[in-house]
Amino acid sequence: MEHSWMERFDVSIYNAVSTEQLRGLRDRMHVELRPSLFEDVIEWNKSVNAAHDRLIAGTIALAEQTLRLEGFGVPPVPYAFVAVGSAGRAEQTLWSDQDNGIVHAVPPEGREAEAETYFRLLADRVHVWLQSAGYPPCPGNVLCTNSLWRKSDDAWKSMIREWYDDPVWENVRYLLMTADLRCLHGDAGLVRSMRNGYMNMLAQTPSMLGHMLQNTLHHKMTIGVLGNIITERYGDDAGAFDVKYGAYIPLVNGIRLLALAAGVAEPSTLGRLDALRAAGKHAPADVDRWREAFVTALELRSLARHEKEDGLYTTRGMIDPESLSKENKRRLKSCLRTGIELQQTVRKTVERLADGAPKKRGGSA
């Protein structure tokens, strides 16, 4: 992709005054950012996520402007619109959904209701407009419209503390999701403060790593004992390989937990791998293999079947193994084998760190 296209894209977002224009820009991304136009999947991933970031930030800015024109004023306190999931890790595909939230500063005494009303209205407007632009809502309701993911920084920190104190499966899942949180628009300092608090709590609660381990290893690499690629047996996807949950997610989850165990707060998978290598806690050759496996999963995920349904870009993360070249089949099998080794390393690392640590009540469901 030429830099001039991204520059024109930025100008078009800045000048957008309607949801129809935003939708046109989203559709244009699918033309200008086709994976086949890029020789390197990492550069493709950077370009795709830069475009998503710009479009979403532009949607938020337009929502702010519209609320101001409608008489609701400006944001009453500083805030950060945050991305979670693949958006938080800067690993969205062209057809990713919405995973987001809002962190705002504590309002002055007596203005709590004003802040709650403003950010609820902003969240509703952004959510609807992103849907209009083709972003389906997160099926797990990790959305700025959900009050669980929209609150003051103090309330966020209290909620995170509650999750640490009661490590049942769902709370641990939320903690792992929060580790991927990234500021998309607004006051990044609010997110840094929250992330620092998160990491400090983890350092003070090493037994939490054991609970995180069970959640992290929930998704397995889908390769058979004889080295065969395991495909879907039934339904519309029969014969297809689930590259998202059979390769990509297990790698993301494993690398995330190794990073957390090493005190790394970086939200992106590639950033976590770089930090792990620099920290020297694992053999450089191992980290390089994990990186190669992740890049393979990232590339094959970009080839997953996708569709446009009711105006929304969606995918089930499936690829047809028979459509892969001989080399890509070899790379996929190598990726899956490396993923198994990674999960074994994660288990050994966490069990060693968590051994003897005070246990919290709760655990896996």
Rank of each mutant, 00 (worst) to 15 (best):
E2W: 01
D10Q: 13
S12T: 10
N15V: 10
R28G: 03
L37C: 07
I42K: 12
N45Y: 02
K46P: 00
G58I: 01
G58M: 06
Q65R: 13
L67T: 08
F72W: 14
V82R: 04
Q92D: 00
A105I: 03
V106R: 08
V106G: 03
P107I: 06
P107Y: 00
P108E: 12
E112L: 04
E114A: 10
L121H: 07
W129C: 00
C138I: 01
C138H: 06
L143G: 00
N146W: 10
L148E: 11
M159Y: 11
I160P: 05
Y164I: 15
D165C: 13
D165A: 15
E170N: 12
N171F: 11
D180A: 01
G189V: 00
V191N: 00
M194L: 15
Y198D: 06
L202R: 11
S207D: 15
G210I: 02
H218V: 08
I223Y: 11
Y234E: 14
F241D: 14
L251F: 05
L258Y: 03
G263K: 12
A275I: 12
L276W: 02
H282N: 05
A283G: 06
A293K: 01
L300H: 07
L300F: 07
R301Y: 05
S302N: 14
A304W: 00
H306N: 12
D310K: 04
T315I: 00
G317L: 04
S323R: 13
L332H: 09
L332A: 04
T338P: 10
E341W: 09
Q344M: 09
G356Y: 04
K359W: 10
